[in-house]
Nucleic acid binder design. Structure first.
Lengths: 147, 147
DNA sequence: CGAATATCAGTGACACTGAAATTA
DNA sequence: CTAATTTCAGTGGCACTGATATTC
């Protein structure tokens, strides 16, 4: 069975190991659709929040604005997103999801859910709920304790 | 409170979000010691397993041999590891941890544990045990279901 | 004027595949 | 000869800081 009193460091280690593994799985499945986790996340945010400024997008993604410039460059190169001037502020651009991007996102949704379903199917619904609860607790604590 | 029936996709999302955040925290603290997660993990494996071949190290790290070459290059450049010929197989090299590497690893251990302590302190010992159990279940399932 | 916005320039850490050299 | 081991060459994804032009 498991250690009844795992140290924080030990839990952290399991946590990162599991995250790496699941991420690798998710990435594999996404890659078949021509996506990556970061790209998928960006497109997904754009779908849910509509056209966004680079800086807003950076905030949602938790990365620097400069990095978003590169990311949007790549998405634009592949025709998945498009920059358009913000009509209300000539300093800003709004990043739009293109039809192609929207379509790709929809097509990748089912396989992505399937992949996650496979990985998380090992847990019972109750365990998933408990995991979810623990994760949000962790996340809140981490946000409360800036590095 | 939380959703009593989170979908696998939703749990996956929280999972990756939490992992990103914790990783960022851990990285910040490690960086103060001149380390990164990947470098720390490599050194840690070398400490526990002794001198290893590049291919063995690649297996433990879960990455391609070629990537280990680069990683060891960097560690060797910083004097934390050292390549030596394998006396039993002239094709192979053994990657050794240097005294400097060992020392750095020891010095970084306390702050790393502290950082994880801070993050995971939000969970009770029972919750940590439960999380640990769920993680190993997830990990086992993922290993059983190759992408 | 100072503040906000996005981009340019340069860099770093980390991973990959495929081909080559050496040795078992 | 075949297989194993490591390295070389080239590339890709993703992120960073600092400086700059434009606009609010």
């Amino acid at each position: 069975v498991s250690d009844p009193h795992p140290s924080p460091a030990a839990v952290a280690e399991s946590f990162f190991a599991a995250a790496d593994l699941l991420r690798k799985h998710a990435n594999t499945h996404l890659r078949e659709q021509g996506l990556t986790l970061a790209r998928g996340k960006t497109l997904s945010i754009l779908r849910h929040r509509g056209p966004l400024r680079v800086s807003t997008l950076a905030g949602k993604l938790g990365i620097a604005s400069r990095s978003v410039t590169d990311a949007v460059d790549a998405l634009e190169r592949d025709g998945l997103a498009q920059r358009r001037p913000d009509p209300d502020d000539r300093r800003a651009v709004l990043v739009h999801l293109t039809d192609k991007g929207r379509k790709l996102l929809e097509e990748s949704d089912a396989p992505r859910r399937e992949a996650m379903q496979r990985s998380f199917a090992a847990l019972t619904p109750a365990e998933r709920a408990e995991l979810s609860r623990l994760l949000s607790k962790l996340r809140a604590a981490a946000l409360d304790t800036p590095p």
